[in-house]
């Protein structure tokens, strides 16, 4: 009989090949930390410019002028900051993830990466459109909770195709979104928690677990 490999080693091998081929494992936890920092900076930029305190309901009252119509200038500023935060976060995530894939000699744009992007994209676009509908109906109070809810669902969907740890972040975002839809008016504050604090917390945990 030829050389017999150790059964335990073989099983570990099999497991790692199954994981490598079905899960996207180059995602860097640090990108979560950076996304969180950008989100906090963005929230601070809005709060400082409009002299809002995070814990007050001023966010909602600020969104409408005293005459009751939406304050366009406030929304444009808010939207610009949000886009900047998004672009910065996604760029850093792509950069760090590419670096990590190179380091481990893994393909960057393979089917696991495509699956991650698709599974994020579908719930997120549905959420984005839904938020525009809310704005169109003038239901401003539910926009912030809706963004967190849909983001959480998108993460939950994606967690099957990358690190399962993403589930905990997903469940936290969903819970926060639901809570925020009961206690409305704290939009900026819950955004800072959901996109800032939670990202930093879970990103750091994933970094410690997989990249150290």
């Amino acid at each position: 009989m030829e050389h017999k490999p150790d059964p335990l080693e073989t099983l570990t091998d099999i497991r790692s090949m199954m994981e490598r081929s079905s899960r996207f494992i180059s995602l860097s936890g640090l990108s979560g930390v950076f996304a969180g920092i950008f989100a906090l900076l963005g929230a601070a930029a809005v709060a400082i410019r409009y002299r809002l305190s995070f814990t007050m309901e001023e966010y909602y009252t600020r969104a409408t002028l005293s005459s009751g119509i939406p304050d366009a200038e406030f929304f444009i500023y808010l939207f610009t900051v949000a886009i900047l935060v998004l672009v910065a976060s996604v760029s850093v995530a792509i950069f760090l993830t590419t670096q990590r894939a190179r380091k481990h000699n893994l393909p960057i744009w393979d089917r696991t990466a495509q699956r991650v992007v698709w599974n994020m994209f579908i719930p997120l676009s549905a959420g984005g459109i839904f938020c525009l509908v809310l704005l169109d109906h003038g239901i401003f109070t539910l926009v912030a909770p809706a963004t967190l809810l849909f983001y959480g669902l998108a993460l939950l969907n994606t967690s099957k195709y990358t690190y399962p740890d993403l589930r905990y972040l997903a469940l936290s975002e969903i819970s926060l979104g639901l809570l925020a839809s009961f206690v409305v008016g704290y939009g900026l504050f819950i955004w800072a928690i959901g996109f800032g604090v939670l990202h930093i917390f879970y990103g750091a945990r994933m970094y410690q677990k997989y990249e150290r």
Binding site: D13, R15, M17, M18, S21, S22
Partner: peptide, 14 residues
Amino acid sequence: SRIRLGIMSVLRVN
């Protein structure tokens, strides 16, 4: 063979 195990592992989950 390690390669055959690899092929089967990958195809089992994809």
